[in-house]
Design a protein around this nucleic acid. Sequence first.
DNA 1: AGTCATCGTGTACAAAGTACACAATTGTAA
DNA 2: TTACAATTGTGTACTTTGTACACGATGACT
Lengths: 253, 253
Amino acid sequence: MLSKQQLIQYSDEARKNYLDHVSIDCVVFGFHNGQMKVLLMKAYEEEQWYLPGGFVLKQEPIDDAATRILQERTGLNKIFLQQFRVFGDPDRSKFHNDLYMEMLPVQENWFSGRFLSIGYYALVDFSGVAPQPDEFSELCTWRDLDDMPGLQLDHELIFKSALDALRLQLNYQPIGYNLMPKDFTMPELQKLYETILDKKLDRRNFQRRILAFGILNRADKPRKGGAHKAPYLYSFDLEKYTNALTEGFKGGW
Amino acid sequence: MLSKQQLIQYSDEARKNYLDHVSIDCVVFGFHNGQMKVLLMKAYEEEQWYLPGGFVLKQEPIDDAATRILQERTGLNKIFLQQFRVFGDPDRSKFHNDLYMEMLPVQENWFSGRFLSIGYYALVDFSGVAPQPDEFSELCTWRDLDDMPGLQLDHELIFKSALDALRLQLNYQPIGYNLMPKDFTMPELQKLYETILDKKLDRRNFQRRILAFGILNRADKPRKGGAHKAPYLYSFDLEKYTNALTEGFKGGW
DNA sequence: AGTCATCGTGTACAAAGTACACAATTGTAA
DNA sequence: TTACAATTGTGTACTTTGTACACGATGACT
């Protein structure tokens, strides 16, 4: 929660720079140790967590705005971003509207108005991210998908919609390049799919299907050092991968 | 194009009632005589056509806004609507910005600002629509998909994106209830799919596949009066149809 | 009654998806 | 050093789905 002083200052800056009534919220997925993670933020003195988000500069394309917002949070500058839906309930930011209402008159108060939020989801390489809280947040950290705290406003809905959109994407586009490290084993990739889909897949059939996409290269040497049989290492063939991204897989019709 | 007088009046009203910086554009699909149609508008004294659209009332959910806008254009009040993307290029409404810039100072001029547009596509029963121009448009009519005029602003892009989204929907949701009349023959439904997909389908395989969805009821009596063998009539089983809409078809994974 | 376009239906083959088992490798514990 | 447990790589039979294709039936028109 902002102090009155902060609110005044922020409102002033925001009204000068940002497009009114529009915000962006990002659901940032990462993958580490066989666990799907989401980047969440927490403000001082507030219980609820929230999604990293921000506003759109007056002359900024919205995709650029999302990229900028995530750069500030993660330090990454090449991010896979996908717009997936607008959240436009007039009461969706009621919590903030009420919270700051009495501090500052409506006309000067940036948070008193209605905000539509454009939802983006992002897929990022966990190990490359250095989460950074912004000036008003206490924490910015990864949270396990199966250990999510309560979320502010409609961020729970936004998060769930993002997960649905991601699952849908799985059906007609490859996923993984943005989430996996450069080299990985087939079981590791399978784990990613299983986490996203929240169900077990058959090891052999998974491998065949993934390989049939023709977007993987297998390294000559298997990885050593594990406690079991050494698995082969794979990496994405970037050219074929991006091609599959734009072309899309089979359709159905 | 609006006169200065109209512009002043409209701007005044708009600033009072609508959310700034946000607009809605609708791609309305209809189907008639084996042709896919889109509802388009044309202004007086302008060459370019445009999509029916409008703005969001200050306290109105965005889906309601889209519904309201389409009610005014079509007279329909139960419309299948699907939000599919936001168009947020800062220059997307440059044409209008420039057009009205000199008439009225920026601060009073509703059309001088930047607008993000939320794209919706709609599927409607052609025969139930009575297209109505609004106060500023000369025409509001159906146009064949393969005889589209030039479109204003980025409406060409919006239209194409809608078509893509519709094609995608075909892969995991049933389509037709909102586009076909109550009773229809299998070849008629096939024509709809062929038009959307822009390719020929095999008659027999199409029938089997559609029937396998289990969302159709066949009438006892075939339709009489045609010049050939009387085809059976089908209708959608609304319960199973809506169920399939929410459940979705097979997934892939 | 014959012709023609269209409609309904079934069958054989190919491709994709699913279920399932065995042998090889590696570190660890006996 | 050897047996063991866990994990990896690979192949085969079966089922389901998708595709290609042909025939007989119907109804208006002549």
